[in-house]
Design a protein around this nucleic acid. Sequence first.
DNA 1: CGAAAACAATAATGTAGATTAAGAAAATAT
DNA 2: ATATTTTCTTAATCTACATTATTGTTTTCG
Lengths: 193, 193
Amino acid sequence: MPYDLILQNIGKHIHLEPQEEARFVSLLTSRKLKKKQFLLRENEVCRHSAFVTQGCLRSYNLDENGFEHILQFAPPDWWIADMYSLISQQPGSLYIDALEDSEVLLLSKKDQEQLYHDCPKFERFFRIITENSLVANRRRVLDNLSLSAQQRYAMFCQHYPSLINHLPQKQIAAYIGVTPEFLSKLRKEFRHS
Amino acid sequence: MPYDLILQNIGKHIHLEPQEEARFVSLLTSRKLKKKQFLLRENEVCRHSAFVTQGCLRSYNLDENGFEHILQFAPPDWWIADMYSLISQQPGSLYIDALEDSEVLLLSKKDQEQLYHDCPKFERFFRIITENSLVANRRRVLDNLSLSAQQRYAMFCQHYPSLINHLPQKQIAAYIGVTPEFLSKLRKEFRHS
DNA sequence: CGAAAACAATAATGTAGATTAAGAAAATAT
DNA sequence: ATATTTTCTTAATCTACATTATTGTTTTCG
């Protein structure tokens, strides 16, 4: 079953009865993405929460010079969406695409809200993962304000060790907020220390 | 009644029956803070969510050189806490203090969880405001990555017009991530354009 | 009210990180 | 396999913003 991972993910925070699991799973649609394929583009309305089961996605925006700035990486067992657009149902500013061949499970906004209504446990689950994501993003705001690029890279290595050897360095540079050239220099200093 | 503001705040997202309002209000404790007085310090465990009814608070951390970096301003009608510490009940890294004489209503973590259990509507309320806060913080991460200091200042003016004339510039500098000296220079350019 | 403290403006100098450019290595596709 | 594209490294130069210092202004508070 390809639903093991998502049920385990939910099971970390709430307990579901078998029929609740069945109901939940029945609302999911699976989608495969080739490397570089988009799940969402700027100015589109985000209509689903996505749970990654294989591969790796990312969300990012483009600045006025066309440079990419990465908001989130989503390896297997992570949720990803343009939360602003998903909540407001207004066109968003994020792109979401696949960094490698990937597979996601999609839950529509409508079904998600119906779940909240029918079974408050799901509202608890999404409250908790939203809280956790908020804590991580607040941490990141403070890190961007108070740490040097060297320190931010060290934090990234510490926090996401599995992604370091998995992702191209330019993607990591676009996440911590430096140019790939400067990250290359940082890594050289890192080796000698 | 000093509870009007908080009940209206909740009323933006859920509807409460009179007895639910009474129950909720009975869990709140009021606290006055003098300017510069702390609600929370680094390494303390955060045990309450705070709702500001008067004045203005802020949350911030200190970097290794002792500089302040502001995570959040909380004027009246805003909630503030060290979410990491509140969730984990571990010592946090944030300071929360009053920028002027202020008043807050405190809801303990225990009571908040009891409310979730007794009345799922409250879980909905906190899910929604947590989602909104997450959207704002993700926006801020991307702004820090993709905008110049000049642009970040312009965004702040646009987004928080009431705070601009209310707060010392050095506080705004510590929020957008520049030194007070540089913000002073930015403002001069701003006037001439 | 007056003294002390906090805040703001300006300017000279310093630096972390950007930009540009060019070549080497690795991954991808035909 | 080899051609093409993408990624990585290195180095020279440039710039947005920090640091330091000085002076003036506003707030705070006894």
